[in-house]
């Protein structure tokens, strides 16, 4: 029996937390919202972007707004705005010379999409069994090139766009009409597949 488990949770739409699994592409947390905490696992209350490190509290807050994304470090976290983030930059905590501290990488690979990707620079890792966190905003790009949020080198050059319309996730390709993505169900096209589950 193939246990395509029913993983749908009623509060996923409310929390704005999802997981995306892409064969040959990676596993991702998809987060929706405007403020995201960065920190350690923190027991029962992990940070939105939780790193496997002995951070016992939030070390930064990533803020998304129409004017661009920004980050507030430590004590700055209560402020409304933070330091603006570029399209691709490292997020350094503490002294730059402190090699032991985790460093994150923030990327907005495509200027046409508001979504951003936050990953952890080795040797550290995110707390969950995922490769990166996607801060979702309207669209999400998948494909082999670097301008995609989810890089799948094995994919044909044809790009794919994942987007939300109301409560429904959709996917469309360059030459493929939009198709609905059922939560917790595998979506498959030729030799690759993906699945979105509640986070």
């Amino acid at each position: 029996m193939t246990h395509a488990t029913s993983l749908e949770r009623p509060n996923a739409l409310a929390t704005g937390r999802w997981q995306l699994w892409v064969d040959r592409g990676g596993g991702f947390d998809i987060l929706e919202g405007e403020r995201f905490s960065i920190g350690g696992p923190g027991g029962d209350d992990p940070a939105d972007i939780a790193v496997r490190y002995c951070w016992g509290r939030r070390v930064a807050t990533l803020i998304r707004s129409d004017g661009g994304d920004s980050i507030c470090y430590g004590a700055e976290a209560t402020s409304v705005t933070g330091r603006p983030l570029g399209q691709d930059q490292a997020l350094i905590f503490g002294s730059a010379n402190h090699a032991a501290l985790p460093r994150l990488r923030y990327q907005r690979p495509c200027p046409l999409s508001g979504s951003a990707v936050v990953s952890v620079i080795p040797p550290h890792r995110l707390f969950g069994p995922i490769d990166a966190v996607i801060l979702f905003q309207q669209t999400l790009l998948l494909g082999p090139e670097t301008l995609n949020h989810v890089r799948v080198p094995a994919l044909s050059p044809q790009g794919w766009i994942v987007f939300r319309r109301g409560d429904q996730w959709w996917i469309r390709g360059t030459h493929v009409a939009p198709q609905p993505l059922e939560i917790g169900q595998r979506w498959q096209y030729e030799d690759w597949s993906l699945m979105i589950r509640p986070g």
């Binding site: 193939t2 246990h3 395509a4 488990t5 993983l7 699994w21 064969d23 917790g184 595998r186 498959q188 030729e190 030799d191 690759w192 597949s193 699945m195 589950r197």
Partner: peptide
């Protein structure tokens, strides 16, 4: 029997 992965995410 296919070129894609046989098993879907969530399969035990």
């Amino acid at each position: 029997a296919a070129t894609h992965f046989s098993l879907a995410s969530g399969t035990r």
